[in-house]
Design a binder for these strands. Sequence first.
RNA 1: GCCCUCGUGGUGAAAUUGGUAGACACAAAGGACUUAAAAUCCUUGCCCUUUUGGGAGUGCCAGUUCGAGUCUGGCCGAGGGCACCA
Length: 839
Amino acid sequence: MERVNFQVIEKKWQDIFSKKGKLENKDGKKFYCLEMFPYPSGRIHMGHVRNYTIGDVIARYKYLKGFNVLHPMGWDAFGLPAENASKTNNLHPKEWTNKNIEIMKNQLKLLGLSINWEHEISTCSKEYYKHQQSLFIDFYKNGLVSRKETYVNWDPVEKTVLANEQVINGRGWRSNALVQRKKLSQWFFNITKFSNELLNDLSELKGWPEKVKLMQKNWIGKSFGCELEFKLIDDKSKINVFTTRPDTLFGASFLALSVDHPLSKNFLKDNNFTKFKESCNSTGTTEEALANAEKIGFNTKLFVEHPFLKDKKLPVYFANFVLMDYGTGAIFGCPAHDQRDYEFAKKYNLEILKVVSDGKNSDELTEAYTGAGKIINSDFLNNLEVEQAKKIIIDKIENKKIGKRKTLFRLKDWGISRQRYWGCPIPMIYLEDGSVVPVEKSELPIELPDDIDLNSSGNPLESHPSWKNTIQKSTGKKATRETDTLDTFVDSSWYFLRFCSPKDLSAPFDQKDINYWMPVDQYIGGIEHAILHLLYSRFFTKAINKFDKKLNLSEPFKNLFTQGMVCHESYKDQGGNWLYPDEVEKIENKKVVKKIDKSPVSIGPPESMSKSKKNTVDPEKMIKQFGADSVRWFILSDSPPEKDIQWSDVGVNSANKFLQKIWNINILITKRRSVNANTDIEEDFVRQINSFAFKIENSIEKFRFNVAIAHFYELFNLLKDCLENEISNKIFKDNLIKVMKLLMPFTPHLSNECLEILNCKNPNKWPLIEKNLLVDDIKLAIQINGRTRDIINVKKDLDKDAILKSVSNNSKTKKYLEDKKIIKTIFVKNRIINYIIKE
RNA sequence: GCCCUCGUGGUGAAAUUGGUAGACACAAAGGACUUAAAAUCCUUGCCCUUUUGGGAGUGCCAGUUCGAGUCUGGCCGAGGGCACCA
């Protein structure tokens, strides 16, 4: 068997790709194919391989189909790891990052990706962040930036502020340290100004997974209800509450306020209250345990009037389960119909009055009833359904001028200040009179200083001896710079725009380029970015669209695909140390031992590859061993791309074997002896190849690469079986060329090499699929009482009578039908014929 | 707790969307070639039957239908999102 040296042909074609790697079809329709750009951590991992291979298949396929394709790549290059690495390696973040970029770029080239490298960008270059600062100033001038003093999530290990979404179960997403509450003045993007658009436009995104849209919808969290005021009996001052259940107002038995509610000022001198407040804060606001924690309250001894029941007085509490940053920081409690209120009422012996009938006769409840039902015990609302009652009572409340309809969102403004060095400086200055103003655009970029001491604690820019001292350009007044840098999510919220005009010095992007390339036709990345990155990018697009009317773009990503993770089992030696897969070997009975001393190793379940568990496989090593085409082939073949895949060395090895087979067939054809052709056999051959081409094209369009690959296996089994058949060399070769072109998006090196050998003049053109050849014999199942008894070959599209005639004498079904009465015959064209008989 | 998704051989998975369940591959067992191994090729895969055949079968239990992996209801299990959002 002929064998190909993958190292040799892959090098050869990669050199050619990098010389003329553009997927350019000047007359074709544009296609912008984008994969989420990587963080330059040092080396690429299998997750990148999967992500970029999927993208490459799409980019190459669209190019072959005649599209003018943009397929760029860049680097999400700011971020904390560079600072950490610089501390351990004594290497400046800039040098560390640029070195990593160099390495990873070469690794990506080894995969044979069709990337427009002339569009390459790096977010840490001043050519990029200059424009980001300019956009920030635009946002500021358009009222989309604000400064707020708020409680923030403070990570005590990283000494920085975390966004809500960077807090996972009360811990920092990187450091895993318990997050504390701290009050700081911070910059915010006013993403909440776009809450409605971000929610409503999800329905426009037909090419997005439902799952991602649902996650965003829940994250934005729109709810309808009303605001309503209660009067304190003492001094008639008012407390505003928000509720989505105004229909349960007659079941209210208390008011509960957040400990940060303005009214708390009156209690700060009360030791019992401050103690209570501390105990509320100590648990943190986001910890999971808190959701299940006991509801506790502080009785103010104050009472409010019930707005519709003059004689009813409700006690006012501070309660640990009421949040200040949602609604008004105050609620009314209706214990019968809200589980939290129920628990609270049980603890403090408050009234539990049913106002929605749960269909049971008893007044006793063991938990809150939140279902539908008729309103009871509620004066003018009695006998109404919940939804009707809501409407009517809100009307009443509005008429009485004690409240109004209100829609609330869970989404909060996006805190973007970070107390770090390796990020984009925020282009704001503080004047001595206390005012805070943006720098002038002509001063951009505000560059990061290179001479920095990263070993000092806190914010390195803050402790730099001179960097923050400056003057306001227009007035010459003394000023100090903002020393916080931007959250790195800002960097990735507009990079897809920059890719369209990466070299434009004067503006973030060129209108013409954006109008041509945007929106991204296919965006591909991990599901972990389902909410934040995608929501922020949508926000940026909408915000820029608002103040830049020429943009004419409401959504950045037309189609989205989220691929699954790459998993591997993990290994631990007897001492409990993690081991890399290549430190162990498999012996009999699926047991695993350590290579160096043959000591037993315990095997963990397959999990997403991570450095901490050492269950990683180095892509470069795999490419060196099996070739890039084999690695690409395997990572696409084993599972549907949206599902997790389990990495297997054996799997890549067998991918390699199959690609060798393809090569071998290619060689055999070039040496094939001439045969006497038989027209019928040739036609059948051509039709079968055409049918596979059709199926493969369909599978690619639907992102079903594993199915496409299964068809390639069938296809090559067919080619091999037909090698000796009465098919002319010309027909055989023409069809092999067709097949090699189909293969091009998957294994570009091998395909190009084979096509060159076959002397193909137009390798970069997708083969034509001939629809008229798809008419074929089909297999039709003959069923008796729904049970398949035989399968016959018939011409396509035959009608019922013709089929009945041809199966009337069928030997396999005859015996079932003899002496039986056929009650009914069900016929589905090209599928089945089903006899219903009486037993 | 609320919301969502998914349960198909030893394994990864197919199934034209209600019409042949297990395509295609991996692994395994047996065989061929070989002095041997590697590589390559062939065969097998639940139950009954020597074969021909027949039966059961897509997490479990019901239902709709001529026909259910696919639709409906209930249960069991796995994964994901949100987390006191009033």
